[in-house]
């Protein structure tokens, strides 16, 4: 038997172990090669499919690279003004308590301009899932400094490296929101390895299960990469993230009540 024949024998429906979920649309993603958003979108879509909640899930997309998230998941979406996704989700979840509502926000959107909305949504314990993608930079506008940019990190608006003396220290949002009684589940995950993606999926599933059980707000931070903003290749970005981001933004669950 030749190698090609053997492969052709393996490639058959009964041997299928991993394929694109039907909740993910066929639209080609606009994200740069290697962008973590793609992995996170996929994981959310898989959880929605596995929990069979496609008809009950409403996503709220932010302003930033993931503004067009609604092009990729086959569910109803609301597109929010910059930073305001938690306010939209608040009303949506309160007016339709049997639905699954999640916000999808980057670090500029959530930690900078939307700081008030996220803190108060967390404090009120809105019955929603917040997916917070932290890659320490503004991607869409061209790589400017974010509240989560690391000390000394070079960005378009911190060209000599972030000076925490003048701009403040990188904000640890998960730690901040875990102090609020309204949050029930606060975790920081990543998506750079198969193991990390599996853990992330468990966390997102737990978030949606919390919604089902009306437990309140689940906050899932994902430390991700921005190879265009960081000016590194996708694989180099993962290495840079492990060396620089993980020590400051340690992975793990901060709160699970």
């Amino acid at each position: 038997m030749t190698a090609t024949t053997e492969i052709n024998n393996i490639i058959s429906e009964e041997n299928l172990v991993y394929k694109k979920t039907s909740v993910l649309l066929d639209n080609e993603m606009h994200y740069c090669p290697g962008c973590t958003h793609g992995v996170i979108h996929k994981v959310i879509a898989e959880v929605i499919e596995e929990m069979d909640i496609q008809d009950k899930t409403i996503g709220v997309s932010p302003v930033g690279c993931s503004v067009l998230a609604y092009n990729y998941l086959d569910i109803d979406w609301q597109q929010a003004a910059h930073g305001r996704a938690p306010a939209l989700a608040t009303a949506t979840a309160r007016l339709m308590p049997d639905k699954y509502v999640f916000t999808y926000q980057g670090d500029g959107d959530l930690a900078s301009i939307g700081c008030a909305e996220i803190i108060h949504a967390c404090n009120r314990g809105e019955n929603i899932v917040v997916v917070f993608v932290n890659n320490a930079i503004y991607g869409m506008t061209g790589g400017q400094m974010a509240p989560t940019t690391l000390d000394g990190q070079v960005t378009a608006t911190s060209p000599y490296g972030r000076d925490c003396g003048s701009t403040g220290a990188p904000m640890k949002i998960s730690e901040m929101v875990s102090l609020l009684p309204g949050t029930r589940f606060v975790t920081r995950q990543s998506a750079e390895t198969a193991g990390a993606v599996r853990k992330l999926k468990k966390a997102i599933r737990k978030g949606f299960e919390n919604t089902r059980e009306k437990k309140g707000l689940s906050f899932i931070e994902i430390v991700g990469t921005c190879s265009s903003g960081w000016k590194l290749s996708p694989t180099q970005s993962n290495e840079w993230m492990k060396e620089n981001m993980f020590p400051y933004y340690p992975l793990g669950t901060l709160k699970d009540e």
């Binding site: 393996i10 299928l16 998506a191 750079e192």
Partner: peptide, 18 residues
């Protein structure tokens, strides 16, 4: 057929068989 590639692929372009 471990699916690691499929899991980490941001564009979900890999289908895995085992």
């Amino acid at each position: 057929g471990c699916s690691s590639c499929g899991l980490v692929c941001p564009d979900t372009v890999i289908t895995v068989y085992r």
